[in-house]
Computed example of a mutant assay.
Amino acid sequence: MKHRKIFYFFGWTLFGLIIYFSIGSYIEYSYENRIYNLTLRKPFVTGLEKKLIPSFDIFLVDSTTHINTGEIPEGKPFILLYFSPYCPYCQEQIREIVVAEKELKDIKFYIFTQFSFSEMKDFYYRNRLDTSPEILVGIDKDYFFSAYYKAYSVPFVAVYGRDRRLINAFKGKISIGQIKTIVKE
């Protein structure tokens, strides 16, 4: 009887360890796979690829200046990044852009939201975007971007080439490496 209890104890322990390591390796694989998918996100097909950037206004942080996207000059690739001040993925995307600013010096960033001016301005200073000359932050007051690109989630990243034509659009955060690769093509 005593040997039987020991046998059951070790049998169940061995079974538990097998299950534990099986689930552990599955979770580790899923985590690595998830990271990989974040760094190599598939483009969102908008049907607007290779079209010129549409013309809409972005009101900047100073509350008096606005930029019309139709007037963005040719010759330098740029990114339109639609964000929410409360989105952790948007905050992470923008932090990565700021950290890699020297690597991305040949790319202009137009970062904007549809939230209130005070919320956008708070986000601007909280993330120290005032120190980045290649990053302009503002508001799309007319709600043009989300309707035109069907951008119903944030962050939404639209990558434009030197010729002012859309290369790719992405729903969600993309890696700095992916941004650099797309712009080089």
Rank of each mutant, 00 (worst) to 15 (best):
1 M>W: 01
1 M>H: 02
2 K>C: 03
3 H>A: 02
5 K>W: 02
7 F>V: 03
16 G>F: 13
17 L>C: 12
22 S>A: 11
26 Y>N: 01
29 Y>Q: 10
30 S>W: 00
33 N>Q: 14
36 Y>E: 15
40 L>P: 00
42 K>F: 10
44 F>T: 15
45 V>Y: 15
45 V>P: 00
46 T>P: 10
46 T>D: 09
49 E>N: 10
52 L>F: 07
58 I>P: 05
60 L>E: 07
62 D>G: 07
63 S>I: 07
64 T>V: 15
66 H>D: 12
66 H>V: 09
67 I>G: 08
69 T>S: 08
78 F>R: 02
79 I>S: 11
82 Y>L: 04
83 F>V: 14
84 S>M: 00
85 P>S: 06
88 P>G: 00
88 P>K: 08
90 C>D: 01
94 I>Q: 05
95 R>Y: 03
102 K>M: 10
102 K>H: 12
106 D>Y: 15
107 I>M: 03
113 T>C: 01
113 T>D: 03
115 F>N: 13
115 F>K: 14
120 M>Y: 05
121 K>C: 07
123 F>V: 05
124 Y>C: 05
125 Y>W: 09
131 T>P: 00
133 P>N: 09
139 I>E: 08
139 I>A: 10
140 D>F: 00
144 F>S: 07
147 A>E: 13
150 K>W: 05
151 A>I: 08
154 V>P: 01
154 V>G: 04
155 P>N: 10
160 Y>C: 01
166 L>T: 15
166 L>P: 07
166 L>A: 10
172 G>F: 02
174 I>W: 01
174 I>D: 01
177 G>W: 03
180 K>E: 04
183 V>W: 07
